[in-house]
Design a protein around this nucleic acid. Structure first.
Lengths: 140, 140
DNA sequence: TCTTGAACCTCTAGTGGCTAGAGCTTGTAG
DNA sequence: CTACAAGCTCTAGCCACTAGAGGTTCAAGA
């Protein structure tokens, strides 16, 4: 296997500019070039990029992915750190969900109170203008 | 009332650089200056900035807030557009919650399967490397 | 072999919403 | 007067891409 960046992009569903970006930030090794200066990739890079894309889809940050990839280079090492990274990320996702759910509740309340009349009577606008009308985590 | 930017920041809990940023992007009018070139604000600006901050806390985008503020300048107009902006935003928040919940489920599954052994046996790493092991909205 | 269009290359800047200095000026209290 | 806090403008950075611009290479077709 000795594929171009476009073919790599097609196989992994990662855009060409994004592949270049990942090389730039060191997530992918600098690819060997043809005489015409074009990058060429093998199966290992396809696998690595699939790992990266999948991790990104799951919301892992680039630095986390960098660490995870470094760990896969030490197959006999303990996976304690992998577990830790995943748990931290899960906790963050959970926090974000909770925060968004609080926002959702506030927005629902505001919209329910809207009489669909004029701006000067609008409960949405009044709620935005007056912080005290909110309750819950969003309010302080 | 004729307060400095620092006082405005204290009253509204919006940082000084953020106030300047909002002026730069036109969300706040350019403030009148002292002979020493310092900005000075009145009650109207405090109220406006509170509206902005509150809307940002609820996750409205700057452009949405710009529109909402423009509407408050027409008190007799219909609040149909306000309602529409809020509903669109609520729908987006709902989508984000659902997407995060799918991620959460995948992460929980991966972590539950982790045997806490070595990297080469790690179910988290294997799941990240093999897309087919995921299910749900995240998988394709 | 030549032509042409697609794909490849590097480089720069932008997205959204701030945030962080650097270096200078103003205001106020002691 | 002095010193320090707060004000000012300007630039660049954060995060993870993304979008051109302008030039080169590759491969298919005539």
């Amino acid at each position: 296997m000795n594929i171009s960046i476009g073919e790599l992009a097609k196989r992994t569903q990662v855009k060409v500019p994004t592949v270049r970006y990942y090389e730039q930030i060191g997530l992918l090794a600098s690819a060997p070039r043809t005489d015409g200066n074009q990058r060429r990739y093998g199966k290992a890079e396809v696998d690595r990029l699939n790992f990266i894309r999948h991790s990104r889809e799951l919301g892992f940050e680039i630095e986390d992915i960098r660490e995870l990839l470094a760990m896969t280079a030490e197959p006999q090492a303990s996976c304690h750190q992998v577990d830790s990274i995943a748990r931290n990320h899960l906790a963050e996702v959970t926090r974000r969900i909770e925060s968004l759910q609080a926002l959702q509740a506030e927005l629902e309340r505001m919209i329910a109170e809207c009489g669909r009349g004029r701006i000067c009577d609008c409960q949405i606008v009044e709620a935005l203008a007056d912080h005290g009308k909110c309750m819950g985590e969003h309010a302080h």
